[in-house]
Design a binder for these strands. Structure first.
Lengths: 154, 154
DNA sequence: CGCATAAAATTGCATATACATATTTCAACA
DNA sequence: TGTTGAAATATGTATATGCAATTTTATGCG
């Protein structure tokens, strides 16, 4: 088994690479949501964090990381930005250095205000992506998110 | 049609949001490739850029943006990093401010060296994602990439 | 009681990403 | 010929992202 010719390697790498295709999809889809959320001064990640805290209720940072599948350093900085805007608040939770994150009334108002634009973005994405891809992304993504939530118990 | 209860909104937004699921997939898959490429001191995006220039041959930045579906400011900075490592080089192309980007011998060597690790990453991703999902992502991603390439002609 | 330790969060550093703005460079034209 | 204009690249600014190192804080132990 020789290593194939470099031209064959290149063709295979540029033509079949999964991560590249996923990134292209992510950039295109992300742009749609960010455009929809722009008037509210939000990015898609930020809305997701706010909505998650709103749905699950007040929680500490660690479990929130698991639910969101985000590194704690990423979340730490994202929370600071969102708190600055007034949509979330954090307070010492009593245990160690732990913080308790909660949604504010402004955060809930925001969710209600953004909802129609979120729906529009979902619709646009449904038009952009074929239904196979859409189904695959939703179901595979859910699997991944559930795997993160499963880490909550211990 | 009244706006539904905020709890229903939250459930729908956290439970069905496409961009969130795509981002989770992207992060998970990206981590696999970056771990595989780590020993070579590369990130997945960088390898893709190098491989693309190597396959398509020397080209200017604008068309490269289209082929990669990347903003020119993003590419500009990525190219600077890759040139620093010696895998690509750029030179004035003669027309206006245009630059001609080419792969170096080191770049070609790198591609050969990384190939086995790229294959391993592809295999791991195939295990992570169901084959339906994989197929859907590849074909939808290809569609998106082709749409970028189509912008080359005019 | 004070120190070591473990757990949690933050910070430093690097890359990726895009929008808006600036800069550069050639070519066409008055 | 000097100026303007269009096209391309680069920079400023902001967010997203993760790994490694640091800081913080309560708790358990000597």
């Amino acid at each position: 088994m020789e290593s194939p010719d470099v031209d064959k390697i290149l063709q295979e790498m540029t033509g079949n690479c999964v991560v590249v295709r996923l990134k292209v999809l992510d950039r295109a889809v992300n742009a749609i949501y960010n455009k929809a959320f722009g008037p509210h001064g939000l990015k898609s990640t930020q809305l997701h964090i706010i909505a998650t805290v709103a749905e699950f209720g007040s929680m500490e940072v660690k479990p929130l990381c698991h639910i969101l599948s985000l590194d704690s350093s990423t979340l730490s900085r994202a929370l600071a930005r969102i708190e600055n805007k007034g949509y979330l608040k954090s307070e010492p939770s009593g245990k160690g250095k732990n913080l308790l994150i909660s949604v504010t009334d402004e955060g809930l108002d925001l969710v209600r205000r953004v909802y129609p634009d979120w729906q529009k973005a979902q619709e646009q994405v449904r038009e952009l992506l074929g239904s196979d891809a859409l189904k695959a992304i939703l179901s595979e993504g859910n699997k991944m998110l559930r795997a993160g939530v499963a880490k909550l118990s211990p």
